[in-house]
Computed example of a mutant assay.
Amino acid sequence: MKKLIEVLPDKTALIERSLSLTLEKITTAIEQRGQCTLALSGGSTPKPLYEALAQQPLPWEKIHIFWGDERYVPPDHPDSNQGMTRQAWLNHISIPAENIHPMPTASGDPTLDAQTHETELIQFFQVGIGQFPAFDVILLGMGDDGHTASLFPHTEALAVRDRLVTVGNKDGQPRLTFTIPLINQARCVIFVVAGENKRPALAEIMAEVSDEQAYPSRSIQPQGELWWLLDAAAGE
C-alpha cells in the first residue's frame, strides 16, 4: 500500500485537489483498462466535488458509477446518497443509464438488497464467488466518530470478511455498505475530509496503535494507493 497525506489550506482547495486527483485516476484507468469503475461517498463534503465533475468533458460512456454505501431510503428521499449525486452531477451529463449502478433499497429487506447488489458486482466484474473485484477509485468520507462508508464503530458490519456488500447500522437504521475487504481491494482509495470536528478521530486513525473497532477508518488499507486529502481545519 502507498499512503499519501495532503493538507490543503481550506475547503475550496480541498475540493480542487480532490477534483484533480479524481480526474487523474479516471484518465489513467481508461488509458490502462478501457474504462473506469468509480465508487462514491455520500454526505455534504463531496457535493461540490460532484458539481465540479459535472462540468468536465469526460468520456462518460467509459465510466461506471457505484456507491460505497447507501441509506436504506428511496432514491428520491432527501437522505439518499444516490439522489444527491444525481442532482449534483449525474442528471447533468450524458452518461448511459446502464453505467449507473445504485444500491437497491426497495425490497423492504436490507439483507436481500445487499445480496442483490453483491450479485450485480460479481456479474459486472466477472469475478468468482469468494473473490473481491478491484475498483479503480473509491471515494470515502469520514465521520467525526471515525466511521467511513456505513462501517460504524463497534458494529457487526466491521467483522464481515466474506461478502462484498453487507448491512451497516447507524442508531438502529439499516444501511447498505461495501465491506472492508472490498474497499481494500481497490486500486485507489481517496478520503476527502473537512472540518475541525474530525481532528480527534484523525489522530486515532493516524496513530501508530489504536482500535480499529472504535475507529473503523483505520481498517482501510487498500492494496493500491491510499490518499488522505484534508483541509487545514481537519489536518493541521
Rank of each mutant, 00 (worst) to 15 (best):
L202D: 10
D69Q: 09
I183F: 05
S150N: 08
A134L: 05
P48I: 13
W228Y: 15
L90C: 05
R199H: 14
I5G: 03
Q82L: 09
I138H: 05
T27Q: 14
W227R: 02
W67T: 07
G172N: 08
F132D: 01
A106N: 11
Y215W: 15
L202G: 04
T148I: 05
L121D: 04
A149P: 06
D10A: 10
A134G: 06
E31D: 12
G83N: 12
V73A: 10
Q123R: 14
P216H: 08
P110Y: 12
A149L: 00
W89A: 01
P78S: 11
Q221W: 00
Q126T: 10
I183G: 08
I205T: 06
F66H: 13
N169T: 09
D109I: 07
L40N: 09
G224F: 08
L164Q: 03
I63S: 09
H154G: 01
M84S: 13
T27L: 04
L226P: 03
D144V: 03
N169K: 12
L226K: 02
K47C: 00
L139I: 13
P59A: 11
W67E: 10
P153H: 04
N184A: 08
L164P: 01
D79L: 03
A39V: 01
P102F: 12
L40F: 14
P104V: 07
F132Q: 03
L40Y: 10
E236K: 08
P96A: 12
S80C: 09
G128P: 00
G143K: 09
W67V: 06
S219T: 07
H77N: 14
V193H: 02
I15S: 09
Q115D: 15
V209F: 00
H101E: 10
V193I: 15
Q221K: 15
